[in-house]
Design a protein around this nucleic acid. Structure first.
Ligand SMILES: [Mn+2]
Ligand SMILES: [Mn+2]
Ligand SMILES: [Zn+2]
Ligand SMILES: [Zn+2]
Lengths: 152, 152
DNA sequence: GCGGTTATCGCAACCAGCCGCAATAGCGGG
DNA sequence: CCCGCTATTGCGGCTGGTTGCGATAACCGC
């Protein structure tokens, strides 16, 4: 085992070390939450994570999933984003950061590069000393398709 | 009554007409929600509105408050903003629009003029045809006080 | 004013998420 | 390998908010 080359993008063992280094513990539930996040290619919900875990480990409690997501977020391994429905979306932190635009009329979701949002963040930092996290909440509005329909 | 001058900023009768013009009805509950919003000088929560109404009208149900806030929002009389706790804040729509910055470390709330946020909205409109409502969600981040403490 | 249509109400049940508690199980040290 | 400390778990209960349903009451036309 020791000599086995680790080719995976996020070596499972180093994550365990990183977790333990802060006095936290690597429980089976926590490992399963991490695995579920890795398997979901993109953002996912706590309920999706829970139901995926339940297939292997039926006794998992939703609150355990929520607490683990929080704990992993404190460690910088995970982030979350708020959309307009009241369901929080979770990302692995190493996934490329991006902003979200969501249409309040048709629900369409667009992703935009952080570079687009960065100038506003820079301005808030300069004017107010406020370090903004503009990826944290989706930007709500009306998409081009819906806007052209409603103005016609 | 008929000749009495109306000096109030938002003539109650014209609101009633505006409500009825869309096939909606001006119920006592709806009037009480509006009054509660007017009495709260700035943004307020559904629960604050409900408990204020309960003093005059104890049988009001929370769902009635929520449905009325939604209905009044559809009419353009009311807007809401999402803060970082999961409690929605409600404004009368004629109150001056502004953005919110909220510190995830100390909870401080700063208000910023929409003009600060407008350049981003213009860019999203130009690049994606997306009409953004940047006042809808508070911008989450770390305020200057907390940022200087944590970097020291 | 009166009556019919139907928007709205109160209620009960539900959903996403959070929290306190007692039991369990990682972890680090010996 | 075993032990003790304590982080974490499952559970029950709660909060803010939403939804379906049958009863009520605005509104409109006469
Ligand atoms: Mn909203
Ligand atoms: Mn958040
Ligand atoms: Zn995403
Ligand atoms: Zn405000």
């Amino acid at each position: 085992m020791r000599a086995r080359a680790i080719t995976h993008a996020t070596p499972a063992e180093s994550i365990g070390e990183r977790v333990r280094a802060t006095g936290k513990r690597m429980t089976v539930q926590r490992r399963l939450v991490l695995e579920a996040l890795q398997q979901a290619k993109h953002h996912t919900t706590a309920e999706e994570i829970a139901s995926r875990i339940r297939r292997q480990y039926p006794q998992i409690d939703p609150s355990t999933v929520y607490r683990n997501l929080e704990a992993l977020e404190e460690l910088g391994l995970v982030t979350h984003t708020h959309f307009e429905d009241r369901v929080t979306r979770w990302h692995l932190a190493d996934a490329h950061r991006h902003g979200h635009l969501i249409c309040r009329s048709c629900g369409a979701e667009l992703e935009v590069p952080m570079s687009l949002l960065e100038p506003l963040a820079a301005k808030l930092r300069a004017k107010h000393g406020f370090v903004a996290d503009l990826a944290h909440s989706a930007v709500v509005g009306v998409c081009s398709a819906c806007a052209s329909v409603s103005s016609r």
